[in-house]
Amino acid sequence: MAESRRKFLNILIGGGIVGWLASVLYPVVSFLKPPALPEANVSALKVGPVADFAAGSSRIVKFGRTPVLLVRLDSGDFRAFAATCTHLDCTVQYRTDKKDIWCACHNGIYDLMGRNVSGPPPRPLEQFVATEIEGEIVVSRLEA
């Protein structure tokens, strides 16, 4: 009786240790595995191959907490700006036909250098950098 009790106790302790180790190791191993975005502050964002962007097209990408407007000019060059209108924080868009950057809320207009040219925006759009690296477009912050 005492013998079987001891055995049971040992099994319980052994099982407890194994279970406990597993419940420590699982979180630790998961923690060590880097998440999809390996950094807190996004410093560069891959947005896809150059071929995905037709000349004269644009796309809004989420650069961390900031929406960024990526424009491919007719010349084939890329430009990137914070897509946040400097007037009241609406999201701006590129107008292919008029070749300007436009905010629908109050008709604010920026040129393709991000400068505010008409309407209420008080300041130019914040600039980002679009670089081509091995056939892929990478958006990054403009170094101060």
Binding site: R5, R6, L9, N10, L12, I13, G15, G16, I17, G19, W20, A22, S23, V24
Partner: peptide
């Protein structure tokens, strides 16, 4: 809570082991 469960089981078993 699963981890807590394991630890509790271990604690109780240990308690009896010590007594033994």
């Amino acid at each position: 809570g699963i981890a807590t469960l394991f630890i509790t089981v271990l604690t109780v078993a240990l308690f009896f082991k010590i007594r033994e």
